[in-house]
Design a protein around this nucleic acid. Structure first.
Lengths: 238, 238
DNA sequence: CGGATCGTTGACAGGTATCAATGCTGGTGG
DNA sequence: CCACCAGCATTGATACCTGTCAACGATCCG
């Protein structure tokens, strides 16, 4: 049993060392010695659309890095409504609240098939104490979370509903890994919760964009081709 | 010259050790030995309404803790409009971007006479390396900045303009140090930039609240008495 | 006293929420 | 295989809200 645990830990360190997106995530700057410090298992696994990564009532024992895919952070309001406060994409870290021994602040739900690394908080704390390189990475991740939230606020909650949807589509084109000119097309309810508008308004605008050819269906119903210049035009003027 | 610097450093460490709000800010957990590590001067000073604490084009060499008062973080948009992305109040830390050697992300402008501690980034970095207690504090401040931003988003950018203003007044009552039942009354333009509404709409709503006695002028034109239950009522239902 | 700045108010058009009804699609069980 | 259902997306009608443009009042200060 103990041996199994040690093997597992060794394996996970090995996997991290060879991880192809390592330069994007927490362990980018770790050295060989740092990896030797890893004792607890780091699990990696995939989640399907709609599955929950963590929520407010789970014990905050892990942080999560996104290897690929996309996750929404949902904040539930007392009246049963909800608001999406951020999207996590490749290289982002979720659940960092756990590092301060406080409960998770959101429910994290998968929007696109997503590949995850789940890292025990204990492990992070040990490395944090013993590896200044990891510490540096962690604080810069934290900063990224703050500045993402600010940019969100400044771009996605101002202007008309049309502008907001245009900005969202442009944001997704950049960040959803579907390739140039392609964007993930979220459910209308999610679009509403992201932009602070109703589902009906979101639907109307998406339908209108489709009619005018600003966005076009692809073979995958969850992905659309977008007319980037046109959307940028809408986002700025109109 | 060198002696003067050393004296100044010694003095600032001394001041921090005796600071009456120390338990709120970064140095809460530092020990005597930790203070002995402080070599660079930590300045404290006051700023008046409208003065700028830092902005995007200043070299990011300091972080700032708010001893008292209130500061807005302004994000300028390309078209000349601006959005207030967060408010800093007693115990908050501003300009933490500097710790990652990136430019400041906002312009920080004083809303209420504010008392500041300005701490050199170099100093923080040294302490961070040598004092695990400070490190812990720093990460928890960072978390606070993230969760503040999220709460902001979830409460102050949804619902009707009336609800948003009500929520803002309740938020200020809790956080502006004017005492129970009293709230800082911001300029209408600031209210607009905070809530994502126009100045005119902000003005209409404030004027209406005044007419119905939900808020009442005090001797200080920048402070109002608020009818808390009524505002909570408005924030939830209506 | 005049000018600048900020707050207030009005009129109006356009945008958005709301309520309600109707398509559309994928999955399930007969 | 098909009928049916549940969940989403779409669309319409309408009232309300908010942005916009414009004018006017209040206050402060030189």
């Amino acid at each position: 049993m103990k041996l199994a645990l040690i093997n597992s830990a060794w394996e996970s360190a090995e996997k991290c060392r060879n991880c192809e997106i390592r330069n994007l995530v927490l362990f980018a700057d770790l050295t060989q010695e740092d990896f030797n410090l890893i004792h607890l298992p780091i699990d990696d696994y995939d989640l399907e659309v709609g599955e929950t990564l963590y929520n407010e009532s789970m014990p905050p024992k892990f942080i999560f890095t996104i290897r690929s895919g996309m996750v929404k952070l949902v904040h539930w309001l007392p009246n049963g409504n909800y608001r999406i406060v951020r999207l996590l994409r490749q290289g982002d870290v979720g659940g960092m609240e756990a590092l301060n021994a406080t409960p998770y602040l959101h429910q994290a739900i998968v929007l696109q098939k997503t590949s995850i690394c789940r890292i025990p908080v204990e492990e992070i704390e040990r490395l944090n104490r013993e590896s200044p390189r990891l510490h540096k990475r962690l604080t810069s991740r934290w900063q990224k979370a703050v500045s993402d939230a600010d940019i969100w606020l400044a771009h996605l909650t101002v202007g008309s509903a049309k502008k907001r949807v245009a900005n969202l589509l442009l944001y997704l084109e950049k960040n959803c890994e579907q390739g140039l000119g392609k964007s993930l097309l979220l459910g209308r309810e999610d679009i509403g919760a992201l932009l602070g508008i109703t589902t009906e308004t979101a639907s109307r605008i998406i339908a209108e964009y489709k009619r005018f050819g600003v966005i076009r269906q692809t073979s995958d119903p969850l992905v659309v081709d977008i007319d980037k210049p046109e959307l940028q035009q809408i986002a700025e003027n109109d």
